[in-house]
Amino acid sequence: MANCNNAAKDNFFYPRSRYYGTFTPETLAFNANLQEFSQKVAYISALETGGKLPPEQAYKQVKTLWKQLKRSRKALGISPNLYPDNQ
Rank of each mutant, 00 (worst) to 15 (best):
A7D: 07
Y83Q: 06
K63P: 04
L69K: 06
R73S: 04
S79C: 06
Y59H: 15
N31G: 00
E48R: 12
N6D: 11
A29S: 03
P25M: 01
G50Q: 08
R73E: 00
R16Q: 09
A42M: 09
K67M: 02
P55C: 14
Q35G: 13
Q39W: 06
L69E: 05
S79K: 05
I44M: 01
L53T: 02
I78A: 05
S17Y: 03
Y14I: 01
T24A: 00
G50Y: 04
G51R: 09
A2E: 07
E48D: 14
S38T: 12
I44Y: 09
V62Q: 14
R71T: 13
N6I: 02
A42F: 04
E36V: 10
Q87W: 12
T49R: 10
L47G: 01
T64M: 14
K67G: 03
K60D: 14
N3P: 12
Q68K: 05
L65P: 03
R71K: 15
S17L: 06
A8D: 03
M1C: 01
A29D: 10
K67P: 00
F30Y: 10
Q87V: 14
Y14T: 10
F23Y: 13
E48T: 13
L47W: 06
R18V: 03
I44S: 05
G77W: 14
L76K: 03
F37D: 03
A75V: 07
N11P: 02
Y43A: 13
S38I: 08
S72H: 08
A2C: 02
K74G: 08
K52H: 15
Q61E: 10
K60L: 15
K9Y: 07
N81Q: 10
A42V: 08
K52N: 13
P55M: 12
A8M: 11
L34D: 04
A7Y: 08
G51L: 07
G21M: 05
A32D: 14
N33L: 06
G77N: 14
F30A: 00
A7T: 00
A8I: 04
Q35R: 09
Q35S: 12
G77M: 15
Y83N: 09
N31P: 00
P80W: 15
A42Q: 08
F23M: 06
Y20E: 11
L76N: 00
F13T: 03
L82W: 07
A29C: 05
K67C: 03
F30E: 00
N81V: 13
T22N: 00
V62G: 07
S45R: 08
